[in-house]
Write a protein that binds this DNA or RNA. Structure first.
Lengths: 151, 151
DNA sequence: TATTGTTATACTCTATAACTATA
DNA sequence: TATAGTTATAGAGTATAACAATA
Protein backbone atom coordinates (compact mmCIF):
# COMPACT_ATOMS: atom_id res chain seq x y z
CA UNK A 1 0.00 0.00 0.00
CA UNK A 2 3.00 2.27 -0.37
CA UNK A 3 3.80 2.53 -4.05
CA UNK A 4 0.33 3.61 -5.21
CA UNK A 5 0.25 6.30 -2.56
CA UNK A 6 3.69 7.55 -3.51
CA UNK A 7 2.82 7.83 -7.19
CA UNK A 8 -0.69 9.15 -6.73
CA UNK A 9 -1.64 12.76 -7.39
CA UNK A 10 -3.32 14.65 -4.58
CA UNK A 11 -6.75 16.14 -5.06
CA UNK A 12 -7.57 17.74 -1.75
CA UNK A 13 -4.88 18.76 0.68
CA UNK A 14 -4.69 17.55 4.25
CA UNK A 15 -3.47 20.43 6.42
CA UNK A 16 -4.84 19.01 9.64
CA UNK A 17 -1.49 18.97 11.42
CA UNK A 18 -0.84 22.65 10.74
CA UNK A 19 -4.40 23.45 11.76
CA UNK A 20 -3.75 21.84 15.12
CA UNK A 21 -1.07 24.43 15.85
CA UNK A 22 -1.89 27.71 17.59
CA UNK A 23 0.71 29.60 15.57
CA UNK A 24 -0.85 28.58 12.26
CA UNK A 25 -4.33 29.65 13.35
CA UNK A 26 -3.17 32.85 15.04
CA UNK A 27 -1.17 33.82 11.97
CA UNK A 28 -4.02 33.18 9.54
CA UNK A 29 -6.50 35.10 11.68
CA UNK A 30 -4.05 37.99 12.08
CA UNK A 31 -3.47 38.15 8.32
CA UNK A 32 -7.22 38.41 7.69
CA UNK A 33 -7.65 41.10 10.33
CA UNK A 34 -4.60 43.14 9.34
CA UNK A 35 -5.61 42.95 5.68
CA UNK A 36 -9.08 44.30 6.48
CA UNK A 37 -7.51 47.00 8.64
CA UNK A 38 -5.05 47.87 5.88
CA UNK A 39 -7.84 48.33 3.35
CA UNK A 40 -10.03 50.27 5.78
CA UNK A 41 -7.23 52.67 6.75
CA UNK A 42 -6.29 53.34 3.13
CA UNK A 43 -9.01 56.00 2.93
CA UNK A 44 -6.99 57.98 5.50
CA UNK A 45 -3.74 57.18 3.67
CA UNK A 46 -2.49 55.38 6.78
CA UNK A 47 -0.87 51.99 7.15
CA UNK A 48 -1.59 50.04 10.34
CA UNK A 49 1.74 51.12 11.81
CA UNK A 50 1.05 54.78 11.00
CA UNK A 51 -2.31 54.49 12.72
CA UNK A 52 -0.64 52.98 15.79
CA UNK A 53 1.96 55.74 15.91
CA UNK A 54 -0.62 58.52 15.57
CA UNK A 55 -2.95 56.89 18.08
CA UNK A 56 -0.23 56.56 20.72
CA UNK A 57 0.86 60.18 20.19
CA UNK A 58 -2.78 61.29 20.37
CA UNK A 59 -3.27 59.62 23.75
CA UNK A 60 0.23 60.50 25.02
CA UNK A 61 1.05 64.01 23.85
CA UNK A 62 4.75 64.65 24.35
CA UNK A 63 5.82 61.03 24.05
CA UNK A 64 9.40 60.51 22.85
CA UNK A 65 10.53 58.48 19.86
CA UNK A 66 12.20 55.99 22.15
CA UNK A 67 9.01 55.45 24.13
CA UNK A 68 7.07 54.94 20.92
CA UNK A 69 9.59 52.37 19.75
CA UNK A 70 9.35 50.42 22.98
CA UNK A 71 5.56 50.47 23.02
CA UNK A 72 5.13 49.45 19.39
CA UNK A 73 8.17 47.20 18.95
CA UNK A 74 9.68 49.39 16.26
CA UNK A 75 13.44 49.79 15.83
CA UNK A 76 14.43 53.46 16.27
CA UNK A 77 16.01 53.76 12.80
CA UNK A 78 12.78 52.52 11.24
CA UNK A 79 10.65 55.05 13.08
CA UNK A 80 12.57 58.06 11.74
CA UNK A 81 11.21 57.77 8.21
CA UNK A 82 7.65 57.27 9.44
CA UNK A 83 7.84 60.38 11.62
CA UNK A 84 9.37 62.38 8.75
CA UNK A 85 6.49 61.40 6.50
CA UNK A 86 3.86 62.20 9.13
CA UNK A 87 5.55 65.53 9.83
CA UNK A 88 5.69 66.41 6.12
CA UNK A 89 1.98 65.65 5.93
CA UNK A 90 1.44 68.17 8.72
CA UNK A 91 0.02 65.57 11.12
CA UNK A 92 2.68 65.73 13.85
CA UNK A 93 5.46 68.01 14.96
CA UNK A 94 8.62 67.36 16.92
CA UNK A 95 9.57 69.78 19.69
CA UNK A 96 12.54 69.66 22.06
CA UNK A 97 11.84 67.61 25.18
CA UNK A 98 11.31 69.88 28.23
CA UNK A 99 13.68 67.93 30.47
CA UNK A 100 15.99 65.95 28.16
CA UNK A 101 18.02 67.80 25.58
CA UNK A 102 18.66 64.63 23.62
CA UNK A 103 15.01 63.73 23.13
CA UNK A 104 12.17 65.08 21.02
CA UNK A 105 8.58 65.36 22.24
CA UNK A 106 5.99 64.28 19.71
CA UNK A 107 2.65 66.06 19.38
CA UNK A 108 -0.24 65.97 16.95
CA UNK A 109 -1.06 69.08 14.94
CA UNK A 110 -4.67 70.25 14.69
CA UNK A 111 -4.82 68.43 11.38
CA UNK A 112 -3.38 65.34 13.05
CA UNK A 113 -6.04 65.44 15.75
CA UNK A 114 -8.77 65.69 13.11
CA UNK A 115 -7.31 62.75 11.18
CA UNK A 116 -6.80 60.43 14.13
CA UNK A 117 -10.36 61.09 15.32
CA UNK A 118 -11.70 60.01 11.94
CA UNK A 119 -9.26 57.10 11.80
CA UNK A 120 -10.18 55.83 15.27
CA UNK A 121 -13.84 55.99 14.27
CA UNK A 122 -12.97 53.91 11.20
CA UNK A 123 -11.02 51.50 13.40
CA UNK A 124 -14.03 50.95 15.63
CA UNK A 125 -16.22 50.27 12.61
CA UNK A 126 -13.64 47.91 11.12
CA UNK A 127 -13.48 46.16 14.46
CA UNK A 128 -17.19 45.39 14.29
CA UNK A 129 -16.90 44.11 10.72
CA UNK A 130 -13.84 41.98 11.46
CA UNK A 131 -15.45 40.27 14.43
CA UNK A 132 -18.94 40.06 12.91
CA UNK A 133 -18.73 36.25 12.97
CA UNK A 134 -18.39 36.39 16.76
CA UNK A 135 -20.93 37.11 19.46
CA UNK A 136 -20.15 39.90 21.91
CA UNK A 137 -19.15 37.32 24.49
CA UNK A 138 -16.94 35.43 22.06
CA UNK A 139 -15.23 38.64 21.04
CA UNK A 140 -14.48 39.46 24.67
CA UNK A 141 -13.22 35.93 25.31
CA UNK A 142 -10.97 35.95 22.25
CA UNK A 143 -9.45 39.27 23.27
CA UNK A 144 -8.77 38.02 26.81
CA UNK A 145 -7.20 34.75 25.65
CA UNK A 146 -4.93 36.55 23.16
CA UNK A 147 -3.75 38.85 25.95
CA UNK A 148 -3.02 35.79 28.07
CA UNK A 149 -0.73 34.47 25.34
CA UNK A 150 1.46 37.55 25.08
CA UNK A 151 1.20 38.94 28.60
CA UNK B 1 -5.86 72.37 31.75
CA UNK B 2 -4.48 72.13 28.25
CA UNK B 3 -1.11 73.81 28.20
CA UNK B 4 0.46 71.80 31.06
CA UNK B 5 -0.62 68.57 29.41
CA UNK B 6 0.79 69.60 26.05
CA UNK B 7 4.16 70.50 27.51
CA UNK B 8 4.39 67.67 29.96
CA UNK B 9 6.64 64.69 29.50
CA UNK B 10 4.99 61.28 29.55
CA UNK B 11 6.04 58.70 32.09
CA UNK B 12 3.84 55.71 31.41
CA UNK B 13 2.21 55.18 28.04
CA UNK B 14 -1.51 54.80 27.55
CA UNK B 15 -2.06 52.22 24.81
CA UNK B 16 -5.61 51.40 25.83
CA UNK B 17 -7.13 52.29 22.48
CA UNK B 18 -4.82 49.96 20.59
CA UNK B 19 -5.40 47.26 23.18
CA UNK B 20 -9.12 47.47 22.47
CA UNK B 21 -8.51 46.39 18.87
CA UNK B 22 -8.53 42.74 17.87
CA UNK B 23 -5.82 43.29 15.26
CA UNK B 24 -3.40 44.70 17.82
CA UNK B 25 -3.91 41.79 20.21
CA UNK B 26 -3.90 39.14 17.50
CA UNK B 27 -0.69 40.54 16.04
CA UNK B 28 1.10 40.70 19.39
CA UNK B 29 0.06 37.17 20.30
CA UNK B 30 1.10 35.89 16.88
CA UNK B 31 4.51 37.55 17.18
CA UNK B 32 5.12 35.86 20.52
CA UNK B 33 4.03 32.47 19.21
CA UNK B 34 5.93 32.70 15.92
CA UNK B 35 9.06 33.85 17.74
CA UNK B 36 8.91 30.84 20.06
CA UNK B 37 8.30 28.58 17.07
CA UNK B 38 11.19 30.16 15.20
CA UNK B 39 13.60 29.53 18.06
CA UNK B 40 12.29 26.00 18.64
CA UNK B 41 12.61 25.01 14.99
CA UNK B 42 16.14 26.38 14.72
CA UNK B 43 17.51 23.10 16.12
CA UNK B 44 16.21 21.43 12.93
CA UNK B 45 17.51 24.32 10.81
CA UNK B 46 13.95 25.06 9.70
CA UNK B 47 12.07 28.34 9.54
CA UNK B 48 8.33 28.23 10.24
CA UNK B 49 7.58 28.33 6.51
CA UNK B 50 9.99 25.45 5.84
CA UNK B 51 8.27 23.44 8.53
CA UNK B 52 4.88 24.15 6.94
CA UNK B 53 6.10 23.14 3.50
CA UNK B 54 7.66 19.89 4.74
CA UNK B 55 4.62 19.07 6.88
CA UNK B 56 2.19 19.53 4.00
CA UNK B 57 4.37 17.41 1.69
CA UNK B 58 4.66 14.77 4.43
CA UNK B 59 0.89 14.46 4.73
CA UNK B 60 0.24 14.88 0.99
CA UNK B 61 2.92 12.99 -0.88
CA UNK B 62 2.84 14.00 -4.53
CA UNK B 63 1.42 17.47 -3.93
CA UNK B 64 2.31 20.04 -6.62
CA UNK B 65 4.04 23.37 -6.09
CA UNK B 66 0.88 25.19 -7.09
CA UNK B 67 -1.19 23.33 -4.51
CA UNK B 68 1.40 24.13 -1.85
CA UNK B 69 1.29 27.79 -2.78
CA UNK B 70 -2.50 27.92 -2.53
CA UNK B 71 -2.58 26.08 0.79
CA UNK B 72 0.15 28.15 2.43
CA UNK B 73 -0.47 31.52 0.75
CA UNK B 74 2.97 31.60 -0.85
CA UNK B 75 3.61 33.22 -4.24
CA UNK B 76 4.95 30.61 -6.70
CA UNK B 77 8.20 32.51 -7.40
CA UNK B 78 8.92 32.62 -3.68
CA UNK B 79 8.44 28.87 -3.25
CA UNK B 80 11.06 27.95 -5.85
CA UNK B 81 14.04 28.95 -3.71
CA UNK B 82 12.64 27.22 -0.65
CA UNK B 83 12.18 23.96 -2.57
CA UNK B 84 15.66 24.26 -4.08
CA UNK B 85 17.15 24.60 -0.60
CA UNK B 86 15.14 21.68 0.78
CA UNK B 87 16.11 19.57 -2.23
CA UNK B 88 19.81 20.43 -1.86
CA UNK B 89 19.56 19.38 1.78
CA UNK B 90 18.24 16.03 0.61
CA UNK B 91 14.90 16.44 2.35
CA UNK B 92 12.60 16.44 -0.69
CA UNK B 93 12.72 15.50 -4.34
CA UNK B 94 10.75 16.69 -7.33
CA UNK B 95 9.44 14.09 -9.77
CA UNK B 96 7.35 14.63 -12.90
CA UNK B 97 3.63 14.66 -12.17
CA UNK B 98 1.97 11.39 -13.33
CA UNK B 99 -0.87 13.10 -15.18
CA UNK B 100 0.29 16.68 -15.90
CA UNK B 101 3.50 17.22 -17.85
CA UNK B 102 3.76 20.81 -16.65
CA UNK B 103 3.68 20.00 -12.96
CA UNK B 104 6.11 18.47 -10.49
CA UNK B 105 5.12 16.10 -7.71
CA UNK B 106 6.79 16.75 -4.39
CA UNK B 107 7.88 13.94 -2.09
CA UNK B 108 9.92 13.65 1.08
CA UNK B 109 13.12 11.63 1.01
CA UNK B 110 13.83 9.12 3.77
CA UNK B 111 15.91 11.83 5.40
CA UNK B 112 13.02 14.26 5.01
CA UNK B 113 10.63 11.86 6.69
CA UNK B 114 13.03 11.46 9.61
CA UNK B 115 13.40 15.23 9.96
CA UNK B 116 9.71 16.11 9.76
CA UNK B 117 8.90 13.44 12.35
CA UNK B 118 11.36 15.03 14.77
CA UNK B 119 10.17 18.53 13.83
CA UNK B 120 6.50 17.69 14.35
CA UNK B 121 7.40 16.27 17.73
CA UNK B 122 9.15 19.55 18.53
CA UNK B 123 6.12 21.47 17.26
CA UNK B 124 3.84 19.59 19.62
CA UNK B 125 6.15 20.33 22.54
CA UNK B 126 6.41 24.00 21.57
CA UNK B 127 2.64 24.09 21.35
CA UNK B 128 2.38 23.03 24.98
CA UNK B 129 4.93 25.62 26.07
CA UNK B 130 3.33 28.43 24.08
CA UNK B 131 -0.12 27.80 25.50
CA UNK B 132 1.06 26.97 29.01
CA UNK B 133 -0.76 30.03 30.36
CA UNK B 134 -4.04 28.55 29.13
CA UNK B 135 -6.15 25.70 30.45
CA UNK B 136 -7.00 22.87 28.06
CA UNK B 137 -10.47 24.32 27.64
CA UNK B 138 -9.15 27.82 27.00
CA UNK B 139 -6.72 26.51 24.42
CA UNK B 140 -9.54 24.74 22.58
CA UNK B 141 -11.73 27.85 22.77
CA UNK B 142 -8.98 30.13 21.47
CA UNK B 143 -8.30 27.82 18.55
CA UNK B 144 -12.00 27.69 17.63
CA UNK B 145 -12.47 31.46 17.84
CA UNK B 146 -9.39 32.10 15.68
CA UNK B 147 -10.74 29.70 13.06
CA UNK B 148 -14.05 31.59 13.14
CA UNK B 149 -12.22 34.82 12.31
CA UNK B 150 -10.51 33.53 9.20
CA UNK B 151 -12.97 30.89 8.04
C1' DT C 1 29.97 55.76 30.35
C1' DA C 2 25.15 55.46 28.68
C1' DT C 3 21.27 57.11 25.98
C1' DT C 4 18.51 59.77 22.08
C1' DG C 5 17.88 60.54 17.55
C1' DT C 6 19.77 59.82 13.27
C1' DT C 7 22.20 57.97 8.85
C1' DA C 8 23.66 54.36 6.18
C1' DT C 9 23.15 49.80 5.13
C1' DA C 10 21.89 44.99 4.77
C1' DC C 11 18.91 41.21 5.06
C1' DT C 12 14.46 39.00 4.81
C1' DC C 13 9.82 38.74 3.15
C1' DT C 14 6.59 39.46 -0.26
C1' DA C 15 4.82 40.81 -4.84
C1' DT C 16 4.82 41.44 -10.11
C1' DA C 17 6.22 40.77 -15.01
C1' DA C 18 7.63 37.77 -18.29
C1' DC C 19 9.42 33.44 -20.23
C1' DT C 20 9.02 27.98 -21.43
C1' DA C 21 6.80 24.02 -21.71
C1' DT C 22 2.59 21.74 -21.56
C1' DA C 23 -2.68 21.42 -21.19
C1' DT D 1 -6.00 30.35 -24.65
C1' DA D 2 -4.81 29.04 -19.98
C1' DT D 3 -1.81 26.97 -16.49
C1' DA D 4 2.74 25.10 -13.90
C1' DG D 5 7.12 26.12 -12.87
C1' DT D 6 10.68 29.23 -13.24
C1' DT D 7 13.75 33.61 -13.59
C1' DA D 8 14.60 38.19 -12.70
C1' DT D 9 13.48 42.01 -10.18
C1' DA D 10 11.34 45.38 -7.23
C1' DG D 11 9.32 46.82 -3.10
C1' DA D 12 8.13 46.41 1.89
C1' DG D 13 9.47 45.37 6.37
C1' DT D 14 12.94 44.66 9.74
C1' DA D 15 17.60 44.60 11.77
C1' DT D 16 22.51 46.16 13.01
C1' DA D 17 26.56 49.39 13.21
C1' DA D 18 28.15 53.75 13.95
C1' DC D 19 27.95 58.72 14.73
C1' DA D 20 26.88 63.51 17.13
C1' DA D 21 24.71 65.65 20.91
C1' DT D 22 23.41 65.27 25.51
C1' DA D 23 22.76 62.85 30.17
Amino acid sequence: MNAPETLAAVDELDTSFLESLMGYNARRATLVIVDAFLKGMAVHDLRPVDFSVLSVIAHNSGVTSRQLCSALNIQPPNLVGMLNTLEKRGLIHRVPHPRDGRAMSLHLTTQGVTLIKAAEKSAAELEAAITSSLSAGERKTLMALLKKIYA
